[in-house]
Amino acid sequence: MLHIKCPHCGMRSQNEFSYGGDATIKRPELGKEISDQDWDNFVYNRKSLKGKHWELWQHISGCRQWIKVERDTATHEIFNTLKATEDIS
């Protein structure tokens, strides 16, 4: 079970969180024209990375905040966690 540092609550066990996928995907702006390919990339196409991966988790049984977590998908090492409003550097 992973140990995730919620930027709002501190270290918490994985079972308090739910996973939310790639954190680097930006939703296209509402009302803007977008090509089929770009839309597909947003909705479906994800890289299945081995290694460092910024991803979203929601602290569902805690503060209910969505957070950004930098995790190694192979080793599960967590390098960094950010609030939803903080930018990935």
Binding site: G20, L56, Q58, R64, Q65, A84, T85
Partner: peptide, 13 residues
């Protein structure tokens, strides 16, 4: 609820 929180916190803060 999670869906709404997702958009409010991440997409349209």
């Amino acid at each position: 609820l999670s869906h709404l929180e997702y958009y409010l916190q991440l997409v349209w803060p």
